[in-house]
Amino acid sequence: YTITPRRTIEKVNQDAEWIFGASVVEAALKANHRTLYRLYIYAGENRTTASKERDSYLKKLARQRNVEVQEVTDSGMLESMSSSRPHNGYVLEASPLRKIPILSLLAVDIDKSNFGLQKAQHDFTGANQTLAEIPGFLPNRTPGRYPLILMLDELLDPGNLGAILRSAYYMGCSALMVTERNCAPLSPVCLKAAVGAAEFMPILTHVTPPRLIKDSQEKGWKFFAAVPPIADASKDKLKKYLSVQDQEVREALNQGPVVLMLGSEGDGLRTTLSRMCDKYISIPSALDVYPGVDSLNVSVAAAVLVQGFVGGARSLGSKVDNSAAQDTLW
């Protein structure tokens, strides 16, 4: 058969991107962290009553943001915009989501409400942010305890990145941190997997992980490196190894701010980075697992490890409307 070539749809702004899916589009309209150009909504005859109700709601959000709405009956147009990925009848043309370029993490406020950022002196993300536009601090999402940040290095699968973003935001991490040059991009595939969480989660980025770790440790941050469980080790070495089930992990956020580090899907965290950490942390397996199925997907492992730190702690968002503070920050 003959493959029909994907159509080229002209954008309002050529630097913009297509984001798609009901949850992603709704989050982008609510978060106010992007420049939004045009919302496309499928208006075919097969639209269900529930879909039409959601259409009206998203149109209302778009009008509040002064975003143009265009209804289309040609599903192929939306398929071209989403590269044939599921879009639920919604595609939004928007500026790319900005990351926050930093050199290191700074100290946490005495009342634990915020923590500082050592801003990069120039925007290496390509977003052309001025120094004044880069925030100097972020709110702590675990009230009464110190913040937890999830740090990723050499994570290449955008689907995994999106899934980790979703879990990290849901469970109360104060930010996600990536290495700028060796992690998956915030692509539409990543954003779809994050189901809107990327619009609300601060995403920090840096270019020199060893320097960031060293300088952040000097400001009181403890780094925990995710590693496989070890079967045999010396007594001295075991002092540095923790299980996600250990009391020290559950109490860590009562003692100081924490960065949980995870590496690539295949090889894990680079040795040069894991050696710099304060502790190693692992997830114990059942005793009878077979070789070859004795590990977890990195996004699943991230969620289990984060739960080990936050436990039953609830984020600020569960009781306090933090949207105004976030709007002023990034």
Rank of each mutant, 00 (worst) to 15 (best):
P139Y: 11
V249M: 00
V12F: 10
E199G: 05
M177D: 02
S274P: 05
I281L: 02
A132F: 15
A22M: 07
H87F: 09
L103H: 08
K240P: 00
H33L: 13
V293W: 07
A252K: 00
I3F: 11
L78S: 04
P228M: 10
A325L: 13
E26H: 03
K214N: 05
L36S: 01
D215K: 08
Y90V: 10
Y170P: 10
G126S: 09
D15Q: 13
P188E: 13
V12A: 08
K239V: 00
R38K: 12
T130W: 14
S82Y: 06
D232L: 11
S95Y: 03
R98S: 06
R145F: 15
A107K: 15
L176T: 02
R65Y: 05
N13S: 04
D111R: 07
G159P: 03
A194I: 12
A324S: 04
L273S: 07
I281Y: 01
L105K: 02
G159Y: 07
A27W: 13
T208W: 06
H122L: 07
V178P: 01
D267I: 03
S80L: 04
T49I: 13
L260N: 05
K240I: 00
G21I: 10
Y170E: 12
H206G: 12
D267L: 06
I3R: 07
R314T: 14
M81V: 09
Q118R: 08
V25H: 02
S216A: 10
S318Q: 04
L92N: 02
P210Y: 11
E53T: 05
V310I: 15
K119Y: 07
K11W: 09
D236H: 14
L260Q: 04
Q118M: 13
K214C: 04
L329W: 13
W18M: 05
W221V: 04
V304N: 02
I230M: 05
K219A: 14
G312I: 14
D278K: 00
R141F: 14
V249A: 00
V12D: 09
G311N: 13
T2V: 15
Q14R: 15
Q121M: 10
K11N: 06
E251N: 11
R98M: 10
F115N: 04
L39E: 01
N13V: 06
R250V: 13
L152Q: 01
L39R: 00
P210M: 07
S84L: 13
Y280Q: 02
G126C: 07
V249Q: 00
Q245T: 15
Y290C: 10
P86N: 09
L117M: 08
I102H: 01
I203M: 08
V69M: 04
E218S: 12
S315C: 12
S187K: 00
K239C: 02
K119H: 10
P284H: 11
E154W: 12
Y90T: 05
K214I: 12
G116N: 11
A168M: 14
G266W: 06
D109A: 11
S113P: 07
V195E: 05
F224S: 00
P229C: 03
G308H: 07
A225M: 04
A94Y: 09
S264H: 08
